[in-house]
Design a protein around this nucleic acid. Structure first.
Lengths: 122, 122
DNA sequence: TTTAAATGATACCAAAAGGTATTATATAGA
DNA sequence: TCTATATAATACCTTTTGGTATCATTTAAA
């Protein structure tokens, strides 16, 4: 076995992008950023069944966005920020586009505050 | 109408996160970062049908990741980086986690290069 | 004015997603 | 040991997703 993790090899960030596509899962990450939690504690913060939450946690784990740590009969879910950094790094590739866009807008405003039509799209 | 865009209101970034979940769509964005393209030119870069590419472009447009500009019988697809920045900003909320993680690792290595077990997870 | 090219629009299909309900298993505590 | 609790696993359902094939529409060009 060359690859650990999912059975089908995706790009390194695919699992994380997939996990982040769902708003409930993103909200779970926000909660886990406050403190690690058992599944039960995560469930308390949503109006869906335990089964649904469990599925979300599995997908987050598959994307390496969280790690799970058994503790007696509980399982502690912990945020794993490095997978988020992987996604941030992918986006970083495009950052010069929005940097330059903001830069152009800034210089246009500075050079002529009353008209900056040359910076509009279309 | 209070909200423009999709009929059901999601968070501002939902459309972008959804669009980014598919690897083909992310690849389209990478291509459009090189230059704007017609649909036909995008199709030339993938082994799927024109219909499938069209659907991906619609989803990218719904997520405001691209804009489409009619030009004669062609339609020019252009990267819209600000929606990517929206996603990057969401991730930024978590950046202190990976910053501190890297920081801890760095200081652990500096103080004792041979053993940094106190920084391992678990 | 035909004709070919670029795109749009639909109908259809299989698989994945997101959810529920139910049953099973492991473990802390009386 | 018996019981309640925390979680796991499974079957099932509906909607969404990613894809195809096909037909329609718009427009450039011979």
């Amino acid at each position: 076995m060359t690859f650990t993790g999912q059975s089908i090899m995706h790009s390194a960030e695919q699992g994380a992008f997939r996990a982040l596509a769902d708003p409930t899962r993103r909200q779970i990450l926000v909660h886990l950023a406050q403190s690690e939690m058992t599944i039960g504690e995560v469930c308390d913060r949503f109006d869906i069944t335990r089964g649904a939450v469990k599925k979300h946690l599995v997908i987050l784990e598959e994307g390496n966005l969280i790690s799970v740590h058994p503790k007696g009969r509980e399982r502690i879910n912990r945020l794993e920020p490095m997978a988020l950094k992987t996604v941030a790094d992918w986006l970083e590739y495009f950052s010069h586009f929005w940097d330059s866009k903001l830069g152009n807008l800034k210089s246009a405003i500075e050079s002529n505050p009353k008209s900056s039509k040359e910076n509009e799209n279309g």
